[in-house]
Design a protein around this nucleic acid. Sequence first.
DNA 1: CTGATCTAAAGCCATGATAGCCTCCTGATT
DNA 2: AATCAGGAGGCTATCATGGCTTTAGATCAG
Lengths: 134, 134
Amino acid sequence: MLITKASEYAILSLIILSKSANPLRSETLSNDLQIPKSFLAKILQSLAKSDILKSYKGVNGGFSLAKDTKDISMLDVIKSVEGKTPAVFECSPSIKECPSNKAHICSIWPFLNKLQGKIDIFLGELSLADILEE
Amino acid sequence: MLITKASEYAILSLIILSKSANPLRSETLSNDLQIPKSFLAKILQSLAKSDILKSYKGVNGGFSLAKDTKDISMLDVIKSVEGKTPAVFECSPSIKECPSNKAHICSIWPFLNKLQGKIDIFLGELSLADILEE
DNA sequence: CTGATCTAAAGCCATGATAGCCTCCTGATT
DNA sequence: AATCAGGAGGCTATCATGGCTTTAGATCAG
């Protein structure tokens, strides 16, 4: 799976927040979306750390978008929530284990890199504003 | 992760098999690739069931390609090994849980479908022959 | 200024999928 | 019949995903 529940919830939250003038509490969002609030809270925290959302504590606190919708790319959102860029494929970490050492089989990576590149571009060029327009 | 170890091992095995005139035993492949043989055996069985490989029992048995390399697409390989088509995203199964019920948020799916389509086409059009040429 | 209350932040568990292992069964070759 | 290699199934460890509980910080009433 490339896009997990966490990313899904993040995008849904951003869509709702984009339509609200003032900050919304995480509980409000979790009610609206029927999502476990504790799980959503963690996701919103990630987005705040990545400067996609701004957070406000205390009474009348909550979350609001930190940027214009056209400056928030889906790649940023997924990277923020997932902790890493969405990878089609993970190369075996240890050199010993990595089969691409062997000359006759190192040929499978180029096509994966090509696919990864296509996905990165697609997600990088797709902004929240684009999604809202659809 | 879209492409798992199992798919990786499958592709590597196919590359080696494409260069061999006679069938190779699963143990030979697992030695060549430094892959646990019991895990690889299961993968090769999947490929045989999907008519990507032909299997031969008994002495001098083993596996060999069942088709021309240009007739084996990466999508077929991954589907065979993974048991399902590689999905960018899994929609929440129960209707109650699926947020796309709510009118104001059902807008995230189109872009995912578009991405999924691009990936399917990419993997579907990419044959083993293409990979060998690279 | 103080503390009670509100909300985000951080840290901690449970479940399920992935990766890898082992054993027995089936069919082919000799 | 004996042996060799694939077929089939279950078993275990590990890790990411998803969800819950406690802690830290801001606001406001008094």
